[in-house]
Amino acid sequence: MPSIEERVQKVVSRLLGVNESQITDDSDFVRDLGAESIQSIELVAAFEEEFDIEMDEEAALQVNTVGKAIEFIKKDIAEQH
């Protein structure tokens, strides 16, 4: 079973069309990975699907890096599973 970090990387790679090797914890979704504002909405939905969680969209959309997204998702998984 891939780790949460690997699964987040895969989702980000698929949705934003960037190579997984380019994605690090410090990668900023907009500045480094080129996410359009509208893609942030798709990312939240994709994480919800991948991890079967419900994310608070307003809090989730404040997250700007991959590492912070991983922490956010881990917290939601711990609370909801």
């Binding site: 909405i41 939240v44 939905a45 969209e57 307003e58």
Partner: peptide
Amino acid sequence: VWFLNNRFYKGYGFNA
């Protein structure tokens, strides 16, 4: 809701 790429999304949330 938002509708984008043929599916519904929550969008940026109620306050936005």
